[in-house]
Design a binder for these strands. Structure first.
Lengths: 103, 103
DNA sequence: ACACTATTTAGCAATATAGCTAAACTATAA
DNA sequence: TTATAGTTTAGCTATATTGCTAAATAGTGT
């Protein structure tokens, strides 16, 4: 499937968008994410897999748990690329984050 | 349905994204758009209705025909708004088009 | 090996999506 | 009014999506 389709399909679901919002504050495990929704673990797992397939999040295994992280750069790039091809008169340009304040 | 869902669901389909690309060059009638695809008129009509419902295009009736126009501003606003809420460290800001060169 | 926790994969049901054809609607023109 | 062109709406089928529960997998500790 084409990258843009993966991106927009992933963003089309409100649960997945909320997961991205939740990940804004930092990494969360699959279980922690599940706890924030009234949806079963397996369903959340599927949402995470779709987000990962669209490169909107990345995962990191730590023992038993899997931490998910927002891929803000990938999101901005994907949407920015689409915008620059479809709205050439409405260019959005990125302001590079000043300094990675993440550990 | 929530605005963001309408936007992203509309953008999730490759035919609809191609319609937007085609409208970059200027207005097209439903029939002209249909001619560019190997998809039936009614199906294209439905795609146009979804794009319109998401405020990604607008329509203008001219006698028999209906002209569709890209709503570049709406697209940029929708995606920009989402980006600024989900990727606060990756702010995209819009450079206002210099001057509406459209009639 | 066994138990225990965290997470994913498999398989199913309900709903949504996208394509089609046929019919209806809208506007122009004879 | 009748005809014709352009477009949408209605109704159908096939496929995709999202939710669930049950079962499998991965890792830790006893």
């Amino acid at each position: 499937m084409k990258a843009a389709s993966r991106t927009f399909r992933a963003l089309a679901d409100p649960t997945r968008r909320q997961i991205l919002q939740d990940l804004k504050q930092g990494e969360l495990t699959a279980g922690e994410i599940t706890a924030r929704f009234s949806i079963s673990g397996p369903s959340i797992s599927r949402h995470l897999s779709i987000l990962k397939g669209a490169d909107l999040v990345s995962e990191r295994r730590a023992g038993n748990r899997i931490f998910y992280r927002l891929e803000a750069d990938g999101i901005a790039t994907a949407l920015g690329d689409f915008l620059s091809t479809v709205c050439p008169t409405q260019i959005l340009h990125r302001r590079k984050a000043k300094k990675e304040s993440r550990s």
